[in-house]
């Protein structure tokens, strides 16, 4: 039973947060949109002029854009496949009773807390380096030729590194969801003679569906913006072999100083991210009513 007075003060209390976020969205977004229609290069100050859709035409017909779009999709899908399947299997395992559950849980969750630059550099140097890396040592010990991960399979290697960072997230959320499963339902099915595989597909998986969707959507939002891992490992190369959209736009704006072109790319990235975001928002919105 809110009085008029308390409603007023409530509005007053929300407004700082709302105004700040509104400013944070509207000011840079409108600037990006505005720049995207300009010929604007920081190396040529004072030459700015309106060029209509030229920046978009250049950006969208650049072969690097298609490479980056493909790499972005491959990176997102690759990491999702590894982390969701791995996460389900791991959650099923960790949900079983065993000795030292607490400690194993801590070990599994740890990679999520490692900052992206550290995990990328540790993997790049101490594991994937073709001369001094542990994988190279292991290959030599087995009499195999060491594999130069980041040169021969740059995107695959980055997918591996990012998957290691996100597997704990997927596992933790799926484990949390699994633990809320009604055990009696499972036992009833077991007593009725349903084999393990059937119990998994008909009881566990439907129960997990919601959590899996949440994992996919949230990871997609973050994975579309993978940046640090690429910056410190391959710099997007060789060529554009591991350049994603985020990295391409970064190169165009801050390395080539092409503000107009970078902004056009930014608008494209925002549109793509929004497509994913709409689905995620629906999911969370539904939950808010429940």
């Amino acid at each position: 039973m809110a009085t008029k007075h308390s409603r007023m003060s409530a509005r007053l209390m929300i407004s700082p947060a709302v105004l700040l976020l509104l400013g944070w969205m509207l000011i840079p977004l409108s600037m990006t949109l505005y720049f995207s229609f300009l010929r604007y290069n920081l190396l040529m100050p004072g030459m700015e002029e309106f060029t209509g859709l030229t920046n978009y035409r250049y950006f969208l017909t650049d072969p690097a854009f298609f490479a980056a779009l493909w790499n972005t999709i491959a990176l997102v899908v690759g990491v999702l496949v590894v982390t969701v399947i791995g996460g389900i299997l791991l959650a099923l395992l960790l949900d079983q009773p065993f000795f030292g559950q607490g400690i194993v849980r801590i070990l599994v969750i740890a990679p999520f807390f490692v900052m992206p630059t550290v995990s990328a550099l540790v993997w790049k140097n101490m594991f994937m380096n073709p001369v001094n890396g542990l994988f190279a040592h292991a290959a030599k010990a087995l009499g195999l030729q060491p594999f130069d991960f980041l040169s021969a399979a740059p995107l695959g290697s980055i997918i591996g590194i990012v998957s290691w960072q996100w597997l704990p997230f997927a596992t933790l959320i799926l484990l949390t969801a699994l633990q809320s499963l009604d055990q009696e339902q499972l036992e009833a099915a077991e007593m009725d003679g349903a084999p393990w595989i059937k119990r998994f597909f008909y009881i566990m998986l439907p129960h997990l569906a919601r959590a899996i969707t949440v994992v996919i959507l949230i990871q997609t939002i973050f994975l579309l913006s993978v940046f640090a891992e690429i910056l410190v490992t391959t710099n997007g190369g060789p060529g554009t072999a591991s350049t994603n959209l985020t990295y391409l736009i970064y190169m165009q704006s801050l390395l080539q100083f092409d503000v107009g072109g970078g902004s056009a790319g930014g608008v494209v990235a925002i549109i793509l991210a929004n497509i994913v975001a709409i689905f995620l928002m629906r999911m969370i919105g539904k939950n808010l009513d429940a």
């Binding site: 929300i14 840079p28 990006t32 720049f35 940046f227 985020t246 970064y250 930014g266 990235a269």
Partner: peptide, 26 residues
């Protein structure tokens, strides 16, 4: 209230690279 909450969440979906240039220049 629900709309405000959802809208706040939507600002989180904005890819940072989309506003990199203006923030950098500002």
């Amino acid at each position: 209230t629900k709309d405000v909450l959802m809208w706040m969440l939507s600002t989180k979906m904005l890819p940072p690279v989309g506003v990199l240039v203006p923030i950098y220049l500002l």
